[in-house]
Simulated scan of single mutants.
Amino acid sequence: MTALLPVTLAGPTITLEPLSTEHHDGLVDAVRDGELWNLWYTSVPTPDSMAAEIDRRLALQAKGAMLPFTLRRNDTGEVLGMTTYCNIDADTPRVEIGYTWNRASVQGTGTNPESKLLLLAHAFEQIGCTAVEFRTHWMNHQSREAIARLGAKQDGVLRAHRWGPDGSLRDTVVFSIIASEWPQVLAGLTYRLAKDR
């Protein structure tokens, strides 16, 4: 597996930049758009905990356990949210795309599928992954539908998988795209994004 080093991934509408502490104020502004931390089935940082979340992700990056990105609009420079490569398995190799959130006002506008296209292309074409995984809370129907629309297939449900921020046990839905499916997923995402522009 090619080493997971910080990299900038640019598309026509958005750019994924390596996460840094300089993104703090933009991320606080983004998370306030829709007060995303109030969704009980998500783990989105509050404005007050954003600095700690940036530090947490960067510490995991230093250990080789995560590669975090900040999502930014190309036309305005506005920060839209965060995403990562995580659960990195260098031996297989495979990664998960996760810990993703985007400001509420851009949800449904195509920025999320474009960021997933950039991450998937890098994972399959540069890193050489055999599979890319996605996980979400059973109750997060919006996320489950968005992952399925990418072309990912549901692998199963990890029941009582981990504790949520509200103290409840979370059932985690696991999806994946394998390398042999990537050409078809790429064609579908490219068509979908071109149609929406």
Rank of each mutant, 00 (worst) to 15 (best):
T76P: 01
G77W: 05
E78S: 14
E78F: 02
V79N: 05
V79D: 13
M82W: 09
M82P: 08
T83M: 13
T84K: 15
T84L: 14
T84G: 08
C86D: 13
C86S: 11
C86F: 07
N87D: 13
N87K: 10
I88N: 03
D89A: 10
A90R: 13
T92I: 09
R94G: 10
V95W: 11
Y99C: 11
Y99N: 13
T100S: 07
T100D: 12
T100M: 02
W101V: 00
W101T: 02
R103P: 03
A104W: 05
V106Q: 15
Q107F: 03
T109G: 10
T109N: 04
T111F: 04
T111Y: 10
N112S: 06
N112C: 11
L120E: 15
F124T: 06
F124G: 08
E125S: 02
G128F: 04
C129D: 05
T130R: 03
A131N: 10
F134L: 12
T136Q: 00
T136C: 00
T136I: 00
H137R: 04
W138H: 14
N140F: 00
N140D: 03
H141N: 09
H141R: 13
Q142C: 06
S143E: 12
S143H: 08
R144L: 01
E145C: 15
A146N: 02
A146P: 01
I147Q: 11
I147M: 05
A148W: 04
R149H: 09
K153A: 08
Q154A: 14
D155W: 04
G156M: 04
G156F: 00
V157E: 01
R159T: 01
R159K: 12
A160T: 10
R162E: 15
G164Q: 04
P165G: 10
D166P: 06
G167H: 00
S168N: 13
S168F: 10
L169G: 05
L169V: 09
R170W: 08
R170V: 04
R170K: 05
T172G: 00
V173W: 01
V173K: 02
V173E: 03
V174W: 01
S176R: 12
S176H: 09
I177C: 04
I177A: 06
I177P: 03
I177G: 03
I178C: 07
A179T: 07
E181R: 01
E181D: 01
E181G: 00
P183K: 11
P183I: 14
P183A: 02
Q184L: 06
V185I: 12
L186V: 10
A187I: 14
G188F: 08
G188R: 10
T190V: 15
